[in-house]
Design a protein around this nucleic acid. Structure first.
Length: 852
RNA sequence: GCCCGAGUGGCGGAAUGGUAGACGCAGGGGAUUCAAAAUCCCCCGGUGGCAACAUCGUGUCGGUUCGAGUCCGACCUCGGGCACCA
């Protein structure tokens, strides 16, 4: 008997599939189409095990859909622009393009060994001029439609390296390379008007039935629709032009609990006041030294600066409130100014206690529900019940004394509108999408700055605006800015000498439409109408939950914007019909520190028994998402070399549910390999099995159940249960004494059921057992419903909810018969001790519960 | 800090509100073998018991229900996201 050798059979079938063009997607109006897409990878240089998991899952779906008669589109490409290439350029003196394409070559060869059912003829990288040229064309369309504009926005500025830093490059408020404290700097930048679509992006979530609830929930919160009151406090003796401070609040019902006004350090009033107030200027400067991330702002100690200004309460002109500049107020949200109500906001309470401001409770728990309620002014915590909860208003001014927060808010808005104090407004948290990056390795923004014409889009016939090849990273900052010739171009409008925009696009732009480009990757326009119409939408999108908000929201916006510019049909405004977020593969992080105490990370393969090769002991940080920067990644190539691709595929699908994180350990790959060997041997034995056997129908019954269960598993993304089911089927098969014909049928079916997961092994068995054609193109087996049900069923009998015994009954036995059988059992008789049951629950086919 | 998840044997996990622990790993025992590898078979949550069986048990505390891993509330721990990592 020959041994199962993945090294021999896998390349053989991979070339067979390729030669037969099995996975080339072609439009076929006679078949239902199915577009399955996994989030394309960043070409870091090597596949990691997370990729294997992600792409194997997509492959299972793609192969299954092919077997069920669909025209399948399953493409692959590269999310190839981005920071790591520039980091490599600085650290290793390689050109970002060379580095990227070399990585792509390497990863593509690793991909090939996994035997994925990908249509490689559609491959592209986002850094291909052909791709980003089309992106530039769309940018110009967006510009004409008013979907893009320029405004000022702050960035993290490293004053030593003289460069803009990504949030990731800011550590504890300092630049990661220079160690210099980061400053906020304002630059004129390009923005997409995604906020114009807030309402639509929010409403459409309700119709995304095949998206995970958690993702929709995160997007809803991110979009952040709120109803509130916008009104103004009048400033007493304020500086010229600042006699009012506009405030937005979602809790106008707490107006009588107001204790101070807080404005952002970037608020126009704060900027005005700091001109004549050195202390305030210093305070604002300190606030501006913080990084730009919301997380950093929220975690920072809450600080304020009393401007000395006072404002009048809108309900009582004699009531004056102090105006503080506070470091936790975002200029980007609302009006950049708030009123603080310490009794009902933990952050305001912390602030009020720190600066000894008054605390006044507006509402308390409803009558009879006070419990151990302590007034915030008496040292209790801020009282923030859910808005639908009924509370008792102590300092209410609209509506009943007892009402819900929601009712009170509505009543307060109505009251204020009637009395001329502001008006109700709906606001969204979602901000416009800043796409400018002051970097080289991205898609150039195709506009020209002309002294007489202003900002002028490049002519479409001049696209793509290609990145210059001759650049250097010897100095920090954007090489495009200091390139000797690239910037100098004639104005597309007047022909006078002008300057190219040197900002490039956020890489999220690249990944916001690649799914559409895959439908016609070589088209001379961004998309081809016929192809887009046929293939869109993506029927199943698969990727990491870390993309739950930004990438998916941006893509949803982009599809709408593309639709409005005629690049996608109306039906594709919502581009992903179904979404599956697979869990991450996690691994421990191994770290040492450099001479300045900064962390240095090490790959798992560099670590043996907690030490590096030179004997340095490493710190172990608990498992976290695998990431290039933390180096906690595992090389799947080593596993493929040792066991083969099928084993790697089988292993990543088994055990953990696909949507849950899995911690990578070496244990188990061995077991997967053993199992595949076992199936192989079982298949080899089939032709030699005796013609006549016993239990043919039992084996076939089990086969039909396996078909049913494995199919359900695949359709519901429960690949781990499909795998478990196949283990069980293999166990049954191994024990079966059935005759040759039954075994043949069962084994061919097993191969088919395994084919989406272990396609090479499946083809080999299929061929060995005389299957017709390629298993990759064979029709998916169908379960015979009649074979799925048992004639008898085991019913557990509970006494007071605890299982005590069981009875075996015909599956359609009626309730009263089951009742009498159950009551007759020894356990029930003993429990009843001659008495009557208090209650008897019989769920036919499921359970009997006797309450005594 | 805010938003979203997840917690079940030694381990990964299974379980339409209905027998908790399927399947796999590790472990133990056995068969085969001169021996080993490979393979095959059996056992395998804790406690008590020779056993039958009893009892406890799904992060913690409380609730709903005839019945809760599953539903509700509070908390703890871990993970993801927080707009320039991708």
């Amino acid at each position: 008997m020959s041994r199962y050798s993945a090294a021999e059979i896998e390349p053989k079938w991979q070339s067979t599939w390729e030669e037969a063009g099995v996975f080339t997607a072609t439009r076929d109006e006679s078949r239902p189409k199915y577009y399955v897409l996994e989030m394309f990878p960043y070409p870091s240089g090597n596949l990691h095990i997370g990729h294997v998991r992600n792409y194997t899952m997509g492959d299972v779906v793609a192969r299954y859909k092919l077997a069920t008669g669909h025209a399948v589109l399953h493409p692959m490409g590269w999310d190839a622009f981005g920071l790591p290439a520039e980091n490599a350029a600085q650290e290793r003196k390689v050109h970002p393009g060379d580095w990227t394409y070399a990585n792509i070559d390497n990863m593509k060869s690793q991909f090939a060994r996994l035997g994925l059912s990908l249509d490689w003829s559609r491959e592209f990288a986002t850094c291909d001029p052909e791709y980003y040229g089309q992106q530039q064309a769309m940018f110009i369309d967006f510009l004409e439609k008013g979907l893009v504009y320029r405004k000022n926005a702050v960035v993290n500025w490293d004053p030593v390296d003289m460069t803009v830093l990504a949030n990731e490059q800011v550590e504890d408020g300092k630049g990661w390379r220079s160690g210099a404290p980061v400053e906020r700097r304002e630059l004129t930048q390009w923005f997409f008007r995604i906020s114009d679509y807030s309402e639509e992006l929010l409403d459409a979530l309700d119709r995304l039935d095949e998206w995970p609830e958690k993702v929709k929930s995160m997007q809803r919160n991110w979009i952040g629709k709120s109803r509130g009151l916008q009104f103004a406090f009048s400033v007493i003796d304020g500086p010229e032009g600042h006699d009012r401070v506009e405030v937005y609040t979602t809790r106008p019902d707490t107006l009588l609990g107001a204790s101070f006004i807080g404005i952002s350090p970037d608020h126009p009033l704060a900027r005005q006041l700091e001109r004549d107030d050195a202390d305030l200027a210093a305070f604002n400067a300190e606030c501006r030294r913080m990084g730009t991330s919301e997380e950093e702002m929220e975690k920072a100690e809450k600080k304020g600066f009393d401007t000395g200004l006072r404002v009048r309460h809108p309900f009582d002109t004699g009531w004056e409130l102090p105006v503080y500049v506070a470091n936790f107020i975002l200029m980007d949200y609302g009006t950049g100014a708030i009123f603080g109500c310490p009794a009902h906001d933990p952050r305001d309470l912390e602030f009020a206690r720190k600066y000894e401001l008054p605390v006044a409770t507006v509402f308390a728990p409803a009558m009879g529900e006070e419990g151990t309620f302590i007034l915030p002014e008496d040292g209790g915590p801020a009282y923030v019940p859910p808005k639908p909860e009924t509370v008792r208003y102590i300092k209410g001014f609209a509506g009943d004394e007892a009402q819900t927060g929601d009712q009170a808010i509505n009543a307060a808005i109505a009251f204020c509108e009637e009395n001329g104090v502001g008006h109700g407004v709906t606001k969204f948290r979602l901000r416009d999408w800043g796409l400018s990056r002051q970097r080289y390795w991205g898609c150039p923004i195709p506009v020209v700055h002309c002294d007489s014409c202003g900002v002028v889009p490049e002519k479409k016939e001049n696209l793509p605006v290609e990145l210059p090849r001759d650049i250097d990273f010897d100095q920090p900052g954007n090489p495009l800015d200091r390139h000797p010739t690239w910037r100098d171009v004639p104005c597309p409008a007047c022909g006078a000498s002008a300057r190219r925009e040197t900002d490039t696009m956020d890489t999220f732009v690249d990944s916001s439409w690649y799914y559409a480009r895959f439908t016609s990757p070589r088209a001379a326009t961004p998309t081809d109408e016929t192809d887009a119409r046929y293939w869109m939408n993506v029927d199943q999108y698969i990727g990491g939950v870390e993309h739950a908000i930004l990438h998916l929201l941006y893509s949803r916006f982009f599809a709408r914007a593309m639709n409005e510019c005629g690049h996608l049909p109306d039906t594709a405004r919502e581009p992903f019909d179904a979404l599956f977020t697979q869990g991450m593969v996690t691994h421990e992080i191994y770290q040492t520190r450099d001479d300045q105490g900064r962390p240095v990370y090490h790959f798992p393969h560099e670590v043996t028994n907690g030490r590096l090769a030179d004997g340095t002991e490493i710190e172990v940080i608990p498992s976290a998402k695998m990431s290039k920067s933390k180096r906690n990644v595992v090389d799947p190539v080593a596993i493929i070399e040792r066991f083969g691709a099928d084993t790697a595929r089988w292993f990543v699908l088994s055990d953990s549910p696909p949507d849950r994180d899995v911690e990578w350990t070496d244990a188990g790959a061995e077991a997967a390999s053993k199992f595949l060997g076992r199936v192989w041997r079982l298949a080899q034995d089939v032709p030699g099995a005796p013609e006549q056997g016993e239990g043919d129908s039992d084996l076939l019954r089990e086969m039909h159940r396996a078909i049913h269960d494995v199919t359900m598993g695949i359709e519901s993304f429960g690949f781990n249960t499909s795998v478990a089911r196949l283990y069980a089927f293999a166990n049954t098969f191994a024990k079966s004494k059935a005759g040759r014909a039954a075994k043949m049928q069962a084994m061919r079916t097993m191969a088919q059921l395994m084919a989406p997961m272990t396609p090479h092994l499946a083809e080999e068995i299929w061929e060995m057992l005389g299957g017709e054609g390629l298993i990759a193109q064979a029709d998916w087996p169908k379960a015979d419903e009649a074979m799925l049900v048992d004639d008898t069923v085991t019913m557990p009998i509970q006494i007071n909810g605890k299982r005590r015994t069981e009875i075996e009954v015909p599956k359609d036995m009626d309730k009263t018969e089951i009742e009498s059988l159950a009551l007759a059992t020894d356990a029930v008789q003993k429990a009843l001790a001659g008495g009557e049951p208090k209650k008897l629950i019989v769920v036919p086919g499921r359970i009997v519960n006797v309450v005594v």
